[in-house]
Design a binder for these strands. Sequence first.
DNA 1: GTCTATAACTAGATAGAC
DNA 2: GTCTATCTAGTTATAGAC
Lengths: 214, 214
Amino acid sequence: MSTREKLLAATLRVVAEQGIAKVSARTIATEAGVNQALVFYHFGSVDDLLAQACEHGARERVEANRAALAEVRDFAALIAVARRVHATEQAAGNVALLGQLLAGASSHPALGPATAAGLELWTREVEGVLARLLGAGPLADLVDVPGLARAVSAAFVGIELYDGVDPVGAERAFASLEQLGQLMGVLDELGPIERAALRRRVRGAARRAVPGHS
Amino acid sequence: MSTREKLLAATLRVVAEQGIAKVSARTIATEAGVNQALVFYHFGSVDDLLAQACEHGARERVEANRAALAEVRDFAALIAVARRVHATEQAAGNVALLGQLLAGASSHPALGPATAAGLELWTREVEGVLARLLGAGPLADLVDVPGLARAVSAAFVGIELYDGVDPVGAERAFASLEQLGQLMGVLDELGPIERAALRRRVRGAARRAVPGHS
DNA sequence: GTCTATAACTAGATAGAC
DNA sequence: GTCTATCTAGTTATAGAC
């Protein structure tokens, strides 16, 4: 394992275990077991190391979970995968990492684009799953799938951060989403008549709502 | 305005505008226009000031938005309020603040409970609204309202953080939630026969799902 | 309550030996 | 590529004058 790789991996561990505030060239180098000056030799600055570690980590974790997401066939399964990702990735700290970087982006400008790119990797996966789940059902043209995928990804990160300060509350939040997922699943299995009725009602509601949402 | 109050207000401004990483006794004191040593005289430590500012800020913002939430009568209105909170509070940086503190909690242990308490204030408001919206409808006993309120609050914070690195994506996420809210609204206005059918199907789906969700 | 001064530390980053 | 040594600047926190 090269020094470069050691530093990238150590960065992810430090952020996940100790938070963005504890990140420094020294803490990372110590965690990696290398000299502090090598951070600057290999990456130029701590911010650049953070940015590269973020993209590197997100890519790796998305690939590790791609197979599981590919097997999702209904909403209950989607929430089940979310729970598993919550359990395994949280242990590895990879989602909280995105939260840390999302928060850190306001003070380290270089982090913004890298974090957005990292989250985008997750979003694309979620988008694929949602498109598959909704594509055939009656909800397909009632929801903007790419938008929903973004909402789901960002929301997941938020709940992951919440888990850091209130694990019991986060667990309960997840459980309620499981119920909601089942509800969506039922909606998605409606027959053609109910389907048409639902569509009419939603369109009516949309017309009654503030157009262009002000 | 007392020095104490000036410091509390300045803390919120610094976190909101520059992020948790830029927070220090000096930056806060400068923002407040007071001497740096007064942070320690009045609050003992920077962490304690952060914790108190968090609870203080959350309380204030929740109260400022309570009236708007009290008027919510359907899901479309709820999302509309969320959007308004998104717009006004984001400008003031009060929700991103919670995100910053959620992230900061992993390195500043004193911040965890304070942040959880701050988010809890929002959660209770959301819970009240959800209970009112769902209470009469068919979804009432199909969803755990307190759990859903936690999910909604945490998700909102996540999207708010996301907005910091990708405003266009965040806007799109919000728009898709608006569609979802209308869908929920329609579901909630079902007649008694459809209502019973829906309930049967969800119960059936719940039985087929992994019990205890492993 | 507010100020100055300062101690004790940690940060990012670089120069230069090897 | 890797190391030591070092500079500069910023950090928390306290002591003591006012």
